[in-house]
């Protein structure tokens, strides 16, 4: 599903923030990505959700070499990926339900189906009463749940979450983790970047640890 080989990434002319990163994610696997702040977790994920191409090395996604993918193919690949961004990236002028509906709308899915599905997912993450709310009126944890609903509405094969439990209390964190487990059981490949080492320890899933831009440990074999 995902293969990284000797991947390096630099921003502009700056230093490499990822160096010689190599790993493989099997279809249906569940990995945590850990590391200190600034270690390069979000940078690595941005390569996964096709926001960037590596400065060197090779990234394979769904069997495709990303550097050979032509522009017209990107939307199709991106629709197979769901992402919860660390900063959510909700559109402030759109209601919660319209934010969640976004991935389906850009695909031209039937409008009734889109709204029903978005409302259903929002109810599931506990925001059924906030369908018409605008993101700036929500708490951090509520925004996070909107972002998660948006990431999964398109039934992605690969779900990428950057600190998805960073802003929620333990009860909701556990509930979200159960959601991810459930999606994983249904076949979704999952990568979660987190600071929450407790979460990682309590789970049976393997950990990819980033240390100053290099992948230092591949713990707990899958």
């Amino acid at each position: 599903m995902v293969i990284f080989q000797q991947v390096g990434l630099r921003y502009g002319l700056g230093p490499e923030v990822l160096r010689d990163v190599s790993f493989e994610l099997a279809p249906g696997s569940f990995h945590f990505l850990t590391g200190a702040s600034g270690a390069g977790k979000s940078s690595l994920l941005s390569l996964l959700y096709l926001a960037r191409v590596p400065s060197r090395g090779m990234v394979h996604l769904f069997g495709r070499d990303v550097s050979r993918v032509v522009r017209a193919e990107l939307p199709g690949l991106r629709r197979r990926i769901g992402t919860v961004f660390q900063d959510f990236r909700l559109l402030d002028h759109l209601s919660v339900v319209d934010n969640v509906a976004l991935p389906l709308r850009v695909q031209g899915t039937d409008e009734r189906q889109v709204r029903d599905h978005a409302a259903e997912l929002l109810a599931w993450v506990g925001l059924g009463d906030h369908l018409g709310a605008l993101p700036p009126t929500l708490s951090g944890g509520q925004k996070q749940r909107v972002a998660i609903a948006r990431a999964i509405i398109g039934r992605p094969q690969l779900l990428i979450a950057d600190e998805p439990t960073g802003n929620v209390d333990d009860r909701i964190a556990i509930r979200l983790m159960r959601l991810f487990e459930e999606l994983n059981r249904l076949g979704t490949t999952i990568v979660i970047a987190t600071h929450n080492l407790q979460l990682v320890r309590e789970s049976r899933h393997p950990e990819l640890r980033l240390d100053g831009g290099t992948l230092s440990r591949h713990a707990k074999a899958a």
Partner: peptide
């Protein structure tokens, strides 16, 4: 730019 980037990342085509 930010909203356009987001639309791209959730799978929007340039034409959209």
């Amino acid at each position: 730019r930010e909203a356009v980037d987001l639309l791209h990342l959730v799978g929007a085509e340039d034409g959209y």
